[in-house]
């Protein structure tokens, strides 16, 4: 495992995933990991490097290729009092175990009158930008957002991966933890020992006065690049990293819009039914008087993600597309 505990060091997003899990496994002997190829192979995305070596087969379960079983067994295991961290290799495959994620896990608490909790995390590699085609590239946080009873986490930086992983594993709620494939190679400051980022606390990652950009995971760097572009033109954009969709920190968003009076939402999922629609509807409801311009959503086109690199960039939000919307709103 990379030495990422040294202060002042940098760490990749990919290393942060393994580090975040390892810290919790050291802290809490009831945490176990399960999934395909997460043990000796250390994960197809190398996001579980070192775990098998350190914790062994008793706590790192290499499983058959059966998504329903990974998530369904995680639920049963959680009922015994352990905290399973289950990996679904690609978030697209959440569709293969949707019964467990939509019908079983989020309803256990409710349907037992509060008597059974299943404190588990389903981690999954999410999103596009790597040319993996229509069935291995989708950003599907909005699928999980549609199911009451699930918490939805999607970090954008290595330190947040560690801090939010800690909060997710310690949470008694079932959490779907989206790790963005396009961010795995990105680097950032290492998180200090004991670093925990509470679920449902958005971060203002770039303060600004003219336009608010709300982003999540991969769209955070996109929004930041767009903000740099328009800054050169005299437009001061604020960027809010939501970090979680459930709980959704609308206080930070409404506070920002209260100061800027303009809002652009940048989301990777297709426009139809995207998470930005929820953010926009709450701002329309509770922040209407703050607004001096229409709310704009920069989302993916409503098509399956194309295989071709050039087309993928046409479908997905880019800094240029975001900058164009920011200019339009600033001039409104």
């Amino acid at each position: 495992m990379a030495d990422v505990t040294a202060t002042g060091g940098t760490i990749t997003y990919r290393e942060a995933v393994a580090e975040g899990i390892a810290r919790e496994m050291r802290r809490d002997p009831t945490v176990v990991c399960l999934g395909e190829d997460i043990g000796a192979a250390e994960g197809v995305f190398k996001t579980t490097v070192g775990l098998f070596k350190e914790f062994g087969p008793r706590r790192v379960w290499d499983t058959p290729i059966s998504e329903q079983a990974i998530v369904g067994a995680a639920m049963g295991a959680a009922m015994t009092g352990i905290r399973p961290v289950a990996e679904i290799m690609f978030s697209d495959f959440l569709a293969c175990c949707w019964d467990y994620l939509a019908n079983e896990i989020p309803k256990v608490r409710y349907m037992t009158g509060g008597q059974v909790t299943v404190p588990l995390v389903v981690r999954t590699a999410n999103g596009g930008g790597l040319g993996f085609g229509a069935q291995h590239s989708q950003a599907v946080e909005n699928w999980a957002l549609a199911v009451p009873g699930l918490k939805v986490v999607a970090p954008s930086t290595p330190a947040d991966v560690i801090g939010l992983m800690a909060a997710s594993i310690r949470s008694d709620d079932p959490v779907v933890f989206f790790e963005h494939k396009g961010l795995f190679a990105s680097k950032g400051p290492a998180a200090p020992e004991g670093h925990v980022v509470p679920l449902g606390a958005a971060a203002v990652v770039r303060p600004g006065a003219d336009v608010t950009l709300v982003a999540l995971a991969s769209t955070v760097p996109v929004a930041l690049r767009a903000a740099e572009t328009v800054a050169a033109e005299g437009i001061d954009a604020e960027v809010v990293d939501l970090r979680c969709l459930v709980p959704l920190d609308m206080h930070t968003v409404l506070d920002s819009v209260g100061r800027t009076s303009r809002l652009v939402i940048v989301e990777e999922n297709p426009y139809q039914g995207g998470w930005g629609a929820t953010v926009a509807s709450i701002v329309a409801d509770e922040g209407f008087e703050s607004l001096d311009a229409p709310v704009r959503r920069v989302a993916a086109a409503c098509v399956p993600l194309p295989f071709a690199d050039s087309l993928e960039q046409v479908v997905l939000p880019t800094a240029d597309k975001v900058a164009a919307e920011v200019r339009r709103l600033a001039a409104y």
Binding site: G72, A73, G76, A77, M79, G81, I82, E104
Partner: peptide, 21 residues
Amino acid sequence: TIVIGAQTLHATGYAMGIAMD
């Protein structure tokens, strides 16, 4: 369990959990 068959996987995971314990 209302959805047909889902409990077999819950049982399997539970069984793996008690074995681990």
